[in-house]
Design a protein around this nucleic acid. Structure first.
Lengths: 343, 343
DNA sequence: GTTGGCACTCGCACTACTAGAGTGCTAACG
DNA sequence: CGTTAGCACTCTAGTAGTGCGAGTGCCAAC
């Protein structure tokens, strides 16, 4: 495509993204010294429209970008969109502030992305393909109730309440925990299950181990089966402020779509597969409720072992270069953090 | 007040709650065989209006209840609003389904309340006034990184990452955990701190205990200081469907208000103090963003020890008797569940 | 290829009007 | 004296008509 056409497309997108108003030829020549007259610009705009990159809401209105227009724009700038050093520093600073509570990291990522882009930030915890148990602990809560705590290799926790058929002292629970720990630690659910079968089931402790062991296996299985453990989002209020969502029915559909874990899981898979920032624009999203929004997502974690996703969600009319830059940066930051844990 | 006036007020509210349209005198006589003419009803409506229980959007429109009208209505029915046995059974059934993961209970409460009332359900975990540590565990994550896990009496968990100045084996961490467990278990943060000071700081284990112990104290303090650990909400989509929130700016203010932890904390205190279902209608809520919504909240837990709140949030035009009934029932259900744990 | 000019289109804001719902008042009734 | 029928009055929502302005598309000239 023509270099000039390209820069005019860019100008239209830039203008429309910041004003949310269809942009006309005069506005372009006035605000972006293009060195040509509005008539020339009009010709080019018409060309861009037949190429499907721009549209008209109606005859006498300015142009707005189509999904294809955004796509072309994104392809042409995505590699070059590196976050300015100042913003990098600010984000780094925010990450430095937080206490080293691992479960907070991905939340912080979402919050940071939301604040930096003034749209919604999303993040999922890094979730391993195959769960590895690192530690098992059993804490007595009351006579016949105990809390079973399973720590996974990545630092994830699961807590399960276990009711006991008879009163059991903490001491016995601890002994059972030590035995289970020996069986399960470092194992996946399948390995652990086979190991559990070989356990001698005699005596009160044996019965206890067997009973609790089954719950452990079930919990690990459950953890394995969960594709997306949690999608943490922040800054949804920003999205509500966008004029395209002034009527709340559109908004409702987006929120409903966010609860569609199946689609998010699919996106996660695609993003994790490529390993870089991915942009999903408007109608490129399969669910019909998502046709008004775009997602910029990037994976983080250790490929093939534990992967999570960070990103942003906003109206298709979003500042893509900025979004891509921050998402890419935050994902590298998360990579560093996860590496420390998973070493 | 007149018995007839009261039943007409009731009819207006019932009608308006279900249709969201201002109700006129004719509609009332047509749909609620009152045995009097529309003219008589008009007189009574006018009376109710001078008493401040109803209003006019404009001269030629029907009546809508004021906040005071809803309040009067709620006061007159709140005691008698017991949930039908069928619905009680359905809710009980839902609670029976769930795995006994304690952290899920309050979430389930919110979900159940949302589904039963088709508005937003809210729930906070039962949080003790003074934290009591039940168990401390330390799990090695990598050479110089460990995960500190604190279990509180009510089954709540805190996980904190601890960086170590030098590589430490799991064995040493376990020994440190046992020592800390001995010091802290059953203690509040103040007690534990004094106990920690008396620990002999010599030797590598002593240093480790001291180092991690400080983090434990900090975490317990933090847990103590948190008024509301988490507000889980579900069914916000229902609220978005209400016609009063068709324009999303109103919606935005409500969502923003939900993030106002200070106010929610204040409400929680008031609700926990009284021990029964409390209704906060529209402008009775202090924050100006809350003037379009009502909350029906009830405490659960053990008075004076650990208290949480369950309830619903919806437009002031909500089915109060139904809401009060379900909230009361769910709170008693939660009481039973908590009692088992906290015995 | 670019530009100025110009007719044309269409949404938006404004006004005017009507229909309908619902009130408030008054006078009559039991 | 409470209740009722009747009726004038009020106000909104919806519809139709109008002018304005932004912006286009095209054409002829440069």
């Amino acid at each position: 495509m023509d270099h000039r056409s390209e820069s005019i497309l860019r100008a239209v997108i830039e203008e429309y993204v910041s004003t949310a108003v269809p942009v006309g030829s005069q506005a372009l020549v006035a605000r972006y010294g293009l060195g040509v007259s509005s008539a020339t610009v009009r010709n080019i705009l018409a060309d861009l429209e037949v190429n499907g990159l721009l549209t008209h809401p109606h005859t006498s209105a300015g142009r707005i970008p189509t999904d294809a227009g955004y796509r072309y724009f994104v392809e042409s700038v995505s590699d070059s969109s590196v976050l300015p050093a100042v913003e990098q520093l600010m984000i780094r600073h925010q990450f430095g502030q937080v206490q080293h509570a691992s479960e907070q990291w991905f939340r912080l990522a979402a919050t940071t992305l939301a604040a930096a882009n003034r749209i919604a930030g999303l993040a999922t915890p890094a979730k391993p393909r195959a769960a590895h148990v690192r530690r098992i602990d059993i804490v007595s809560i009351s006579d016949r109730l105990a809390s079973l705590i399973i720590v996974f290799r990545e630092g994830a926790l699961r807590q399960v309440l276990v009711t006991l058929p008879e009163a059991v002292e903490q001491e016995a629970l601890t002994r059972a925990a030590v035995i289970l720990d020996g069986i399960m630690a470092g194992r996946t659910s399948g390995d652990a299950e086979r190991a559990l079968e070989r356990i001698d089931g005699d005596g009160p402790i044996g019965t206890l181990v067997r009973r609790v062991g089954e719950r452990v296996i079930a919990a690990v299985r459950d953890y394995d089966a969960t594709i997306i453990e949690e999608v943490f989002s922040d800054g949804l209020l920003h999205v509500m402020e966008a004029p395209e969502f002034e009527r709340s029915d559109k908004l409702r559909r987006v929120f409903a779509a966010l609860e569609n874990r199946a689609y998010l899981g699919e996106l996660l898979d695609r993003v994790a597969g490529t390993g870089t920032v991915q942009v999903f624009i408007g109608a490129e999203n399969a669910p019909e409720e998502m046709r008004d929004v775009s997602l910029v997502l990037a994976p983080y974690g250790v490929p093939g072992r534990a992967v999570g996703v960070v990103g942003v969600l906003g109206p298709t009319r979003m500042a893509y270069p900025q979004a891509i830059g921050t998402v890419r940066f935050v994902s590298t930051l998360m990579n560093e953090l996860v590496k420390h844990i998973d070493a």
